[in-house]
């Protein structure tokens, strides 16, 4: 690929690099045995996705992806993993089974089918339909969330509230039969 570094091709080159990193890292998330290694690979996946969002002019989504997922949610994951701090013996050796093999085959078939079916549709979207002046900016995303899809957005926040209340309820429940109160 001699033209990979040509200024016109740089976005495509960056996309393929980020896509390869995202796919390899997400496979490693599933195949690694060590939970911390899995979490770190998940972070790598999320960061490459943020890069792809930025390439698609969605700077706001990219920033939020880093801020919320990589910076907050994954830190909570790692916090919990470290509190458990499982040793290699507790994790145990990999246990291959027929069901897992079948699952891998099914997922591969699904991805292949989706790629074949969607490739033509995706390539047919003309890039010129996106207005680079407003597309993906904070203002346009804000208008979409708080004007066009306000009801859906507020319903989502209601679901999150239900989730928080549920977590508090579970955490405050007394363990019956335990020694201490």
């Amino acid at each position: 690929m001699p033209d990979a570094l040509h200024p016109d091709n740089l976005p495509a080159t960056a996309f393929y690099l980020l896509a390869v990193v995202a796919i390899v890292a997400s496979i490693l998330v599933v195949t690694r045995r060590n939970p911390v290694a899995q979490a770190m690979n998940l972070i790598l996946t999320l960061l490459s996705l943020a890069g792809i969002f930025a390439l698609l002019q969605a700077h706001f989504v990219a920033a939020i992806q880093i801020l919320v997922y990589a910076g907050a949610i994954l830190v909570v994951f790692i916090f919990v993993i470290m509190l458990l701090n499982l040793s290699d013996e507790e994790i145990g050796p990999p246990r291959p089974s027929i069901a897992k093999g079948l699952a891998v085959l099914l997922v591969a078939a699904m991805i292949w089918g989706a790629a074949v079916r969607c490739a033509d549709d995706v390539l047919a979207i003309p890039a010129a339909t996106l207005d680079p002046g407003s597309y993906g900016t904070l203002a346009s995303v804000g208008l979409l969330i708080y004007r066009d899809y306000l009801l859906a957005f507020e319903l989502t926040s209601l679901f999150i509230l239900i989730g928080i209340v549920g977590a508090v309820l579970l955490a405050s429940r007394k363990v019956s039969g335990g020694g201490d109160k």
């Binding site: 706001f60 920033a63 830190v75 790692i78």
Partner: peptide, 19 residues
């Protein structure tokens, strides 16, 4: 476009190194 968010997002990754 969201420079402040970018700065906060990147700064929030620092805790991963410490952890």
């Amino acid at each position: 476009d969201a420079g402040i968010l970018y700065a906060f997002g990147v700064a929030s990754l620092g805790v991963l190194g410490i952890a």
